[in-house]
């Protein structure tokens, strides 16, 4: 399976007087890597949280693979095949790296209402967790405490947990943030390898990475999509250049407009 499509219909979310998502209608094709860019406060993370089910929209609908998931809780959506990584990473900091992935594996296996068998001696659980760590290049750190990993390793672990169970849709929130040049290159390579295997929504400020990776890009300003198109379209779009990218050419410039 290589991803599933996503469609938003008139999605809206307000916080008091602040409009975070403004009647957003938006589509992602199956297998597409769709980048979401926009200035800080444009409502990117809020949108991801509505897609993952952590926030519920005030109005509108979310369709995943043709099915209306607007009313489903976060855990139900995960089981349908939506994985999410977090801005600034979100781990079980005092757990071992392996236990972090174990939790992800057992969660995706349906339910963990198993009271009896020792989880750490569960061969199926261990194998699946190790396989995921190997893929992320973290198997040599399996017994380390997650909180003790370097920032780059934590981001890789965060991503590895989101990837457990091969979600059909991946929501990535600034995977490049805070990474050094070398770590950034590694992350771009990793995302390239994932491309096509999942549908991906990528929120990112690193414009080099965005323009290199994305099939299509949507520019979000104050909760509204002011433009959607291929990287070439977006680069050429005058409105986008004025509103967000400024006058400087985007390619070759990191953190433009941030």
């Amino acid at each position: 399976m290589s991803g599933a499509g996503l469609a938003l219909v008139d999605l809206s979310k307000h916080f008091g007087g602040v409009i975070a998502t403004d009647r957003l209608t938006w589509q992602i094709a199956a297998g597409e890597l769709h980048a979401l860019i926009g200035p800080n406060g444009a409502g990117k993370t809020t949108l991801l949280s509505q897609l993952s089910g952590e926030l519920s929209p005030d109005a509108g609908r979310i369709l995943f693979d043709g099915r209306d998931i607007t009313a489903l809780s976060a855990d139900r959506r995960t089981l349908l095949g939506i994985g999410r990584s977090f801005q600034g990473t979100s781990l079980f900091a005092e757990f071992s790296v392996l236990d972090n992935v174990r939790l992800a594996v057992q969660a995706r296996a349906g339910h963990s209402f198993r009271f009896w068998r020792a989880a750490r001696q569960d061969a199926a659980l261990n194998q699946a967790a190790f396989a995921q760590l190997r893929e992320a290049g973290l198997d040599h750190r399996a017994q380390a405490t997650a909180g003790s990993l370097s920032h780059g390793e934590q981001r890789q672990l965060d991503l590895a947990m989101a990837l457990v169970g091969r979600p059909r849709l991946l929501l990535l929130d600034e995977p490049m943030a805070g990474l050094g040049a070398e770590e950034s290159l590694a992350m771009v390579a990793r995302l390239k390898a994932l491309k096509g295997r999942h549908s991906i929504v990528l929120v990112e400020h690193d414009m080099t990475a965005v323009f290199e990776l994305a099939d299509r890009i949507t520019v979000l300003v104050y909760g509204r999509a002011i433009a959607t198109g291929t990287p070439a379209d977006i680069r050429a779009n005058a409105e986008v250049r004025a509103a967000y990218l400024g006058e400087a050419p985007p390619a070759g410039e990191r953190h433009a407009g941030a």
Partner: peptide
């Protein structure tokens, strides 16, 4: 057990655990 691991995961990072599907 798996149950215990999930319970402790909720103590450590409730939001993440929910997004992992628990």
């Amino acid at each position: 057990s798996r149950f215990g691991l999930a319970l402790q995961g909720a103590r450590s990072n409730e939001r993440r655990l929910r997004v992992l599907g628990v």
